[in-house]
Nucleic acid binder design. Structure first.
Length: 118
DNA sequence: ACCGTGACTGACG
DNA sequence: ACGTCAGCCACGG
């Protein structure tokens, strides 16, 4: 199994691969790590990702493209600023043209759900 | 080992 | 179309 064993590490492995200027949602990541339905736990994992490097937590938003995790960043505008620096337009904590920026790890990485031991 | 918690989601009224 | 409700799952106390 090329995938990390710990749940958190699996989440990080996926998040690390989100391209600049793209965003993924919690539910998709949960499925990508073989824990469909554990979207909330993914957020929990992200909360623990602070301090770790190479984890673009700001590219993870909820399913409607809202910056639900902005409050957990150092500055109240940190998340928004980082995204806009990558070309993502944000208005009122909401990503504009979310569909155009949406990046589904399961689809983009060609993850085979059967390989996750489901 | 049980219980509460949360950066969520889909269903329902 | 929009606000509420109730499941969901891993983690820490």
């Amino acid at each position: 199994m090329p995938l990390p064993e710990d749940f958190y590490d699996r989440v990080y492995a996926i998040v690390r691969q989100i391209p600049s200027g793209k965003v993924a949602c919690y539910g998709d990541i949960a499925r990508a790590v073989g824990a469909a339905g554990a979207a909330r736990t993914v957020g929990y994992a992200m909360n623990a990702s602070h301090g770790k490097d190479g984890i673009p937590a700001h590219r993870v938003v909820n399913r409607i493209g809202m910056l639900s995790g902005k409050a957990h960043f150092p500055g109240i505008n940190a998340m928004e600023q980082m995204l806009e620096a990558e070309g993502v337009v944000i208005k009122n904590d909401q990503i504009q043209d979310f569909d155009r920026h949406h990046w589904d790890p399961v689809k983009e990485l060609g993850i085979d759900l059967d390989d996750l031991g489901l």
